[in-house]
């Protein structure tokens, strides 16, 4: 009989955990800020990075480029730019655009704060 109660306890615990997970995820938007640049879908984020790369190509200011990329989210800006190149390849961007972004990545590597974290 005691084993039966323990079994019911485990079952109800499992159900409670599932409900708790669902409730936590359901409540997530309530505590998260409204969608911002870091939540941009991949094509728009890639375009943002390309714009940063084009501006960097003209002014050569890697620090300013890093600042503009930082608006896209928490990961190191170097990783943001690298991911954008991967996405740009998949989205069919021209080789010229890829080169421009690659040079941005090269420029960002000169910034200590842009080093990707292990």
């Amino acid at each position: 009989m005691r084993g039966g109660r323990f079994l019911w306890f485990l079952i109800s615990l499992a159900i409670g955990i599932v409900l708790g997970l669902a409730a936590g995820w359901a409540a997530a938007p309530l505590r998260a800020p409204a969608g911002a640049a870091q939540d941009l879908q991949s094509p728009d984020k890639t375009e943002w990075v390309l714009m940063v790369a084009e501006v960097y190509a003209a002014d050569g200011d890697a620090a300013a480029a890093a600042q503009r990329l930082a608006q896209l989210g928490a990961p190191p800006v170097l990783r943001v730019a690298q991911e954008a190149i991967i996405n740009a390849t998949q989205l069919g961007y021209t080789q010229s655009d890829l080169d421009t972004m690659a040079r941005l990545v090269h420029g960002l590597q000169s910034l200590p704060s842009a080093e990707p974290q292990p």
Binding site: S12, L13, G16, I17, V18, L19, G20, A22, A23, A27
Partner: peptide
Amino acid sequence: GLALGFAY
């Protein structure tokens, strides 16, 4: 269970 799931 609810508390654990929600906290997680």
